[in-house]
């Protein structure tokens, strides 16, 4: 199952932080971690990343790992630099009040998995 960013926004009751946000972007996979080496080792290309960290290095990690969009869980707000960098790299950012656990649960329930094989 894949979801569009518009659908993910509704499922997570999320707010969009970046000016670049294509609601029709299709997301086929998701991965969640707070450890950047985890993201770099185990995420699939073109995934959505759900994380509790809001540093600029998260955006750079996402860029090198071909992450398509990032959701910040539990209402953590990144600073302006992080948002500006994400706009520059064309990586949409969203923020949700749900915890990481609940965010992942909600997306999983709608069919989003962490790799193609799990489909």
């Amino acid at each position: 199952m894949s979801l569009t960013l518009a659908e993910i926004k509704v499922i997570l009751n999320a707010n969009v932080l970046t000016s670049k946000f294509d609601a029709n972007t299709v997301i086929g996979m998701a991965y969640s971690a707070d450890l950047m080496s985890d993201v770099l080792s185990f995420s699939q290309t073109d995934s959505l990343l759900i994380t509790g960290l809001v540093d600029k290095t998260v955006v750079r990690t996402a860029h090198v790992a071909n992450i398509k969009a990032i959701v910040f869980a539990r209402g953590k707000v990144p600073n302006k630099d992080t948002v500006a960098l994400a706009d520059e790299k064309n990586i949409p950012l969203m923020i949700t009040n749900f915890s990481k656990y609940e965010s992942c649960g909600r997306l999983y329930e709608k069919g989003l998995r962490n790799s193609y094989d799990a489909k």
């Binding site: 707070d34 450890l35 950047m36 080496s37 985890d38 770099l40 080792s41 994380t51 960290l53 540093d55 290095t57 998260v58 990690t61």
Partner: peptide, 15 residues
């Protein structure tokens, strides 16, 4: 706390 230090970096380079 910044998301590093899981001891996966060098093995990941190798991989």
């Amino acid at each position: 706390e910044m998301g590093f230090g899981s001891g996966m970096g060098l093995p990941n380079i190798k991989k």
